[in-house]
């Protein structure tokens, strides 16, 4: 089948998509956007988190056909050219990135959290990010990064 998706503001068309393919597979393997990661492909790790029409979802759980004629925003669409999004910048400087495999999903999830709740408490951060596994950091620096991004989005 043919799937048409607007990804990061650009129209994309993928042909010969097999019905069983996920949005994640189409992004990674057909549209050349491998930023969203594939750590479980079962909805357990959050490494594939993207926006689907403004809702953060696990792209591995969305069938490619469900995304037809909809808008997707991935980690590749957050920075403005060389200017990182404040969430990306906060992860970078806080030491929240080690291997980085969890990072794209966590950054989209954090971006989504701060949109909904610009000043989350620690328990709120922990709850919001509980679906995103990281095996390297023990989450300490990830929490630092979220706090930093929240403080900066305030302009100070």
């Amino acid at each position: 089948m043919r799937v048409r998706i607007e990804v990061n503001g650009e129209q994309h068309v993928a042909d010969d998509v097999w019905e069983g393919e996920s949005l994640l597979y189409v992004l990674r393997e057909r549209l050349g956007l491998p930023g969203s990661k594939n750590a479980c492909e079962q909805g357990e790790c959050g490494s594939c988190t993207v926006y689907l029409d403004d809702v953060a979802v696990c792209a591995c759980l969305v069938a490619a056909g469900q995304a037809h004629d909809r808008r997707v925003r991935t980690v590749e669409g957050l920075a403005d050219g060389d200017r990182l999004d404040p969430v990306q910048e906060a992860y970078l400087v806080s030491g929240a990135v080690q291997c980085g495999f969890c990072t794209p999903g966590l950054i989209v999830a954090t971006h989504d959290l701060l949109r909904r709740n610009p000043h989350p408490s620690d328990p709120e951060i922990r709850e919001a990010l509980a679906g995103n596994l990281c095996r390297c950091t023990g989450y300490e620096k990830i929490l630092d990064a979220v706090r930093l991004a929240a403080s900066r989005s305030d302009g100070g």
């Binding site: 590749e76 920075a79 990182l84 970078l92 990135v97 794209p104």
Partner: peptide, 23 residues
């Protein structure tokens, strides 16, 4: 010191090429 990781910018932008991203 603790300088920013040289691979960090690529990683936060989703542009770092992991072994599963090869094509």
């Amino acid at each position: 010191a603790s300088p920013v990781r040289p691979d960090g910018t690529l990683k936060v932008k989703g542009e770092f090429a992991y072994s599963s991203d090869l094509w």
